[in-house]
């Protein structure tokens, strides 16, 4: 395990959630759950973040925003969809304004179920995401290795 998974900095984006999941995400930062134990920090800045935590589904207003945030994060990065809204659209799925879950826009790595998702499962989801982060890092390094191997 490299330092990558010991220091996951998250960016929390509230897409079109009912605020139920948001409060649970923030609860993770409170003394009771204290995610900083795992080195998790809420950065509020895509350029510093490793994990994009999204609550709520995609609508026409936040579509571009989600894409922008995702593209402004440096690789390797993972996306965690928190709550069923983020996973599939949830109870709002049929609404006129909702496009669907986050995965209709950007690739999602971990789905955290629940309405609202409990802090324990959110933390669990983020910790799951870390191993994916490590995998992605390795894939990132791969082409370079092949290239250098080719030269020899």
């Amino acid at each position: 395990m490299s330092t990558l998974s010991k220091s996951p900095w998250i960016l929390h984006y509230d897409a079109s959630s009912c605020n139920g999941c948001d409060i649970e995400v923030l609860a993770c930062l409170s003394p009771l759950y204290d995610v900083e134990r795992f080195g998790i920090i809420n950065t509020g800045n895509p350029k510093h973040a490793d994990v994009l935590v999204i609550t709520g589904g995609v609508n026409e207003q936040n579509r571009e925003v989600i894409k922008n945030l995702y593209h402004q994060m440096p690789d390797p990065k993972v996306v965690v969809a928190v709550g069923i809204c983020a996973s599939s659209g949830g109870v709002f799925r049929e609404c006129y304004n909702i496009v669907g879950g986050i995965d209709c826009l950007i690739p999602v790595d971990v789905y955290v179920p629940g309405c609202a998702a409990r802090p324990e499962s959110i933390i669990d989801g983020i910790v799951k995401a870390l191993s994916i982060l490590e995998e992605k890092k390795e894939k990132m390094a791969l082409p370079v290795r092949v290239a250098s191997g080719g030269e020899q």
């Binding site: 984006y13 800045n45 895509p46 350029k47 571009e64 925003v65 989600i66 922008n68 945030l69 593209h71 402004q72 440096p74």
Partner: peptide
């Protein structure tokens, strides 16, 4: 190095 636009709170810019 990959060049990305400055952070604009995610707004389409």
């Amino acid at each position: 190095t990959k060049v990305v636009p400055p952070y604009m709170a995610g707004r389409p810019t």
